[in-house]
């Protein structure tokens, strides 16, 4: 059992996501940075789909009722056990009764706490991921608060304290991010110049960027990027409107400003989407902090597939190394 003493800014139980229900409006949820989430799991002997705690900017304070093996990956929030600093990206042994505390993240936005055995809350539609909008999954469908008690599953027998990863596995969250995008979907609605503006602008991550969408600011009038046309039947009157359609996770929706849809996304609607962030880069973007800037780089679908494959290969190799 994990006892939450302080909830942190916004801490939720997350996993690899809830799939199969997009057609009834259910986004996948799950850890927005799957890279850090998965490595944290592997370090403690869990499979990728075990549930971790996703912590935003400032982590919770929690107490362990039993001995445990934990790992913290992602943004560095300087974790400490009973006041003593512990390493990140490393499997750490915890004694029953010890308290884990975090500081504010100095680089990156989200860290993941994995516990051997996984956070064992009940599954909803085959996933433990929290989706706060309708209050399902995770712990009572909401962010964690003081007093919450989270069950922990049965650890794998051979998980080892001290397991760690090479330094080059750990991302540099402080660097300026280039987010790779496959342009398409409804990008025919953009003028050539509009497309250049989207790809050439340094976009600032807004204060409202969250798990639903990363809103991006710049001094750009979005309507000016669009071709004028007589709007088709059913599409709505604004030039950025289209007949309502499904939004891919990672797509860039042009709703007054570009919004990159994250894992708690609205699943569809009437704004033109003009490209989709390559799947590994969705996690990179999710580590972007409010007021940091990002730029988009257009890549082909073949390049996107290669990027995904090497991301998968890297994680598979780490899984192999840590889980055997």
């Amino acid at each position: 059992m994990l006892r939450i003493k302080e909830g942190g800014l916004s801490t939720t139980v997350q996993d690899t996501g809830r799939f199969g229900n997009y057609h009834i409006g259910m986004p996948p949820s799950g850890a927005v940075d799957q890279y850090a989430h998965r490595i944290a799991n592997f370090l403690v002997g869990n499979e990728a789909d075990a549930a971790t705690l996703e912590m935003t900017y400032s982590g919770p304070t929690l107490e362990f009722e039993e001995d445990a093996l934990i790992a913290v990956c992602g943004a560095d929030m300087s974790p400490s056990l009973d006041g003593e600093a512990v390493s990140t990206w490393t499997a750490i042994g915890v004694d029953a009764g010890q308290s884990l505390e975090f500081q504010f993240a100095t680089e990156g936005a989200r860290a993941y706490l994995a516990v051997a055995g996984g956070v064992d809350v009940e599954q909803v539609m085959e996933s433990r991921a929290t989706y706060t909008l309708i209050g399902i999954g995770g712990y009572e469908g909401r962010t964690l608060e003081a007093g919450d008690e989270l069950p922990v599953g049965e650890p794998a027998a051979d998980a080892q304290e001290g397991a760690t990863v090479d330094d080059d596995v750990v991302p540099d969250y402080g660097s300026e991010d280039t987010i790779r995008v496959v342009m398409g979907l409804c990008d025919y609605r953009l003028t050539d110049e509009g497309r250049d503006v989207l790809l050439g602008t340094q976009w600032k991550i807004s204060d409202e960027a969250d798990r639903v969408g990363y809103r991006l600011d710049a001094d750009v009038d979005i309507q000016d990027l669009f071709e004028e046309r007589e709007q088709p039947f059913g599409a709505g009157t604004d030039p950025t409107n289209v007949v309502d359609l499904g939004y891919p996770i990672g797509s860039i929706q042009m709703a007054g400003q570009p919004i990159v849809l994250m894992r708690d996304a609205v699943t569809g609607g009437g704004y033109a989407t003009v490209g989709t962030v390559v799947s590994p880069d969705r996690g990179t973007l999710a580590q972007g902090r409010s007021h940091e800037t990002v730029t988009f780089e257009s890549v082909s679908v073949d390049e996107a597939l290669t990027i995904r494959e090497s991301w998968n290969d890297q994680l598979d190799a780490l899984r192999e190394e840590l889980l055997g």
């Binding site: 088709p232 007949v243 891919p248 989709t276």
Partner: peptide
């Protein structure tokens, strides 16, 4: 037929509703 990056395909059958 449009690629939504490496893991989605979006298919627009018409621009107008019918």
């Amino acid at each position: 037929y449009e690629y939504g990056a490496d893991d989605h395909v979006f298919v627009e059958l018409a621009e107008s509703m019918s």
